[in-house]
Amino acid sequence: MEQHTPQPERARGLQMARSMCWHCQSEVTGEYFCDRCVKVQPVSKETDYFTCFGVPRRLLLDPQKLEAKFYELSRTFHPDFYQTKSADEQTISLSNAAVLNTAYRTLRNPIQRAEYLLALETGSVKDIRTSPPADLFEEILELQDTLEEYRASDRDSDQGHRLRATLQTEQEALERRKHEMEAQLQQLFADWDQLQDAGEATSLARVERDRILKQMRDLLSHRTYVNNIVNDLAATIA
């Protein structure tokens, strides 16, 4: 069996299928319901998660507001409230609720939110390959060797203890590095929001936009790489 890398659903996004109500064929102007027959409308594949939540494409979002919106939309779409409705409406509610849940999961986490925004702005998120930061390359190769050695060693022996201590120091160092990267990301998020808020269409603004996205992509990729190693380390020496 071969799996084809899918075009991520998130890149295509979702949007209320405006224009025509599936039920009464009248024009839908309401946000989620047809004004005329009050039937729930399917969220279309063209809407992105930011639009779905009614927030601008920014990276520093207020978690409280997101949560409030999530609860509000859950009350609008959750299948529990469609049990007495027609089968079509139940199907729409089910798929809308599933989309809503994915949207919230993506937006509530700042890293996933940034990855998603990158995908929206520059194309498929799958292109982000996790890679080690260049300056850590040597160190990580060495670390992998130590890990192998530790896995093969008797954990209670002197050698085991020594290797464990080394790995622990490494883990702490990498965690510090991860936090540094997260702080840098935070700065980039602020830069992005500022640039968007300014809303200038100058070529200088375009250069700045590309710089932020490029740096963000690299940092996200490195951070994920380091994060994976930290988790691996933590699991091994736990």
Partner: peptide
Amino acid sequence: TTIPASAKEMFT
């Protein structure tokens, strides 16, 4: 993951 939850996968 909060339910309802969905995932799509492309096969060839």
